[in-house]
């Protein structure tokens, strides 16, 4: 009965991934970036405080910056892993053969996604020892760490799905890469810009046009931009008081993480659905 649940594409991809030097060097690069950051941070802070000691407050700052950097790395690496998933097979002319096997489109797409997710999770786990430093110095609760990791997972699955969708609907890997990185830059950067623009426009409007002095602010659109920004999410998880001030600034009381979760789960579902439907694009009957 094992056979019913096994996913050949997933198994093969994992095998190839762990065999390739690229994955190994990618992992090393990732760990190197984290290590350099942590060492640099420790050096700078112990010198600033003059005492050579590291306080829980500093430890928390390190945790915060580490989390944001890790989120950045996840966002940077995931498109590279997934945006070629289907288009490389098309370019290497292995896709047609795969599509004549009895595997369903869903199975193939999910296998491709999970193999990338598995690699990224491994990468995150490999970075965990660095977090132990943070625990050593105190200032962070394990539940905070778990929450952050869960949001990494949600984010990388969503970005991975975007990559796989573009990889399925575009002919060439390079186009798919550009589109996926574009989507990522939009989610990670442009949304922040839109948020600030939106908030200041709403404020200008309130001060100039609206005579009521203490009308509650209400800016759902800027709130939306903030709530889908992974960086903003990190900050609101790390500093709950930031979440409260954001919510009062825009006048929307749904916690940012709830909107984030809903948006990214829907985004994942949408992208996977498109990918599954478009995988056998030349066939009318799909799935």
């Amino acid at each position: 009965m094992m056979e019913r649940f096994s996913n050949p594409v997933l198994l093969k991809e994992l095998k190839l991934r762990f065999r390739s030097f690229k994955s190994f060097s990618g992992l090393m690069f990732y760990l190197a970036v984290l290590c350099i950051f942590v060492t640099g941070f420790l050096l700078i802070y112990t010198q600033f405080s003059g005492t050579g000691f590291f306080r829980p407050r500093d430890s928390f700052t390190m945790f915060a910056v580490l989390s944001v950097i890790q989120m950045g790395l996840v966002m940077f690496i995931t498109p590279g892993l997934t945006a070629g998933a289907i288009s490389t097979e098309r370019e290497k002319q292995t896709l047609n053969i795969l599509l004549t096997t009895t595997q369903s489109s869903t199975q193939i797409i999910v296998g491709k996604l999970l193999s990338s997710v598995a690699f990224l999770v491994l990468m995150l786990l490999a970075g965990l020892p660095l977090y132990s430093l943070v625990f050593l110095f105190g200032g962070v609760s394990p539940s905070q760490l778990i929450t952050i990791f869960l949001f990494y997972l949600v984010t990388l699955i969503a970005i991975g799905s975007i990559g796989i969708m573009f990889s399925t609907i575009t002919k060439r890997t390079i186009v798919s890469m550009i589109a996926t990185y574009g989507a990522m830059i939009f989610l990670g950067g442009i949304t922040a810009f839109l948020f600030f623009v939106g908030v200041s426009m709403d404020q200008m409007f309130m001060y100039s046009g609206n005579p009521q002095p203490n009308a509650a602010p209400f800016s759902p659109i800027p709130y939306f931009w903030a709530s889908i920004n992974p960086g903003a999410l990190m900050v609101t998880i790390l500093y709950p008081e930031m979440a409260t001030s954001l919510e009062s600034a825009v006048g929307v009381s749904i916690p940012v993480w709830v909107s984030y979760l809903i948006f990214y789960v829907l985004l994942t579902a949408f992208c996977l659905l498109i990918a599954i439907r478009k995988l056998r694009a030349n066939m009318k009957t799909n799935r």
Partner: peptide, 11 residues
């Protein structure tokens, strides 16, 4: 099915 042009997975 054996296509006219096909590739193989490296590694």
């Amino acid at each position: 099915y054996m296509p006219d042009f096909f590739g193989v997975y490296d590694q």
